[in-house]
Design a binder for these strands. Structure first.
Lengths: 119, 119
DNA sequence: TGAACATATGAACAGTTATTCATATGTTGA
DNA sequence: TCAACATATGAATAACTGTTCATATGTTCA
């Protein structure tokens, strides 16, 4: 043990190879950050409900608010977050703006999550 | 429009079928909640790093702390959350406790997330 | 049995976040 | 151009969350 840093436990000596292995396969810091940010977006039941609402069809903000029994403002704020994460996109049709799932990533991620939750 | 609730916009009238459709396919409230809770667990870069560390092999708390350059306490707190979500499990080996991914759900969910993030 | 080690946990604090309220921006039709 | 509608947004507040610190629990070995 000798010159060992006092703040660390014995594992540092014993399992150094494991530590090295962990560090070797760890993705870059910014990838980890982005990944956590992505899941954070899914980690709110309001946004999950919005995503489920858009699962089958494009819907305008007003209908979303009505469907989910939320204020228009709250929906808009959450849609902004979903859009920044590229999970949803939108298009204007006259006075209304329709939102839709950008691609199938959302559906696949939710499907995987559902598998874990409903088993 | 007439007797329409003033606080709601026209969409309520115009797209009532869409609203009904949204409500019809929406999962139960508790499933939505559980799903959001699950993703919330993935939505923290510390926990993501722990999950990646466990991706390839079982590791004890001490090695995790050392690998991720975190305090043992912080790691333990996060492991508790991961365990409550059934994402990780553990076993004791002498003085140490080894954690590992409970099943392949974690790997699949992370893989889907990575696809979205790294494209 | 007791000392050393490994892990867990409660309380407190700082940082983050979702909603609300008020209001701004942008579109349509008369 | 103006009124009505649809959506976006900034500020404020309340609730939540991750880390730290101190300490408790549980295991091994002499």
């Amino acid at each position: 043990m000798a010159i060992q840093d006092v703040e660390h436990c014995d594992c540092v000596e014993v399992h150094k190879n494991k530590v090295d292995q962990v560090l070797a396969q760890m993705p870059e810091e910014d990838v980890l950050y982005d990944l956590a940010e992505l899941f954070k977006v899914f980690g709110d039941s309001t946004r999950i409900r919005i995503l489920f609402a858009l699962y089958g069809a494009d819907i305008c903000v007003c209908d979303l608010a009505e469907s989910l029994n939320m204020t228009q403002s709250a929906v808009s704020h959450q849609l902004k977050i979903l859009k920044q994460s590229r999970l949803v996109s939108n298009r204007r049709e006259g006075k209304q703006i329709y939102y839709f799932l950008t691609d199938d990533h959302v559906r696949r991620i939710i499907a995987q999550g559902m598998e874990h939750v409903t088993e």
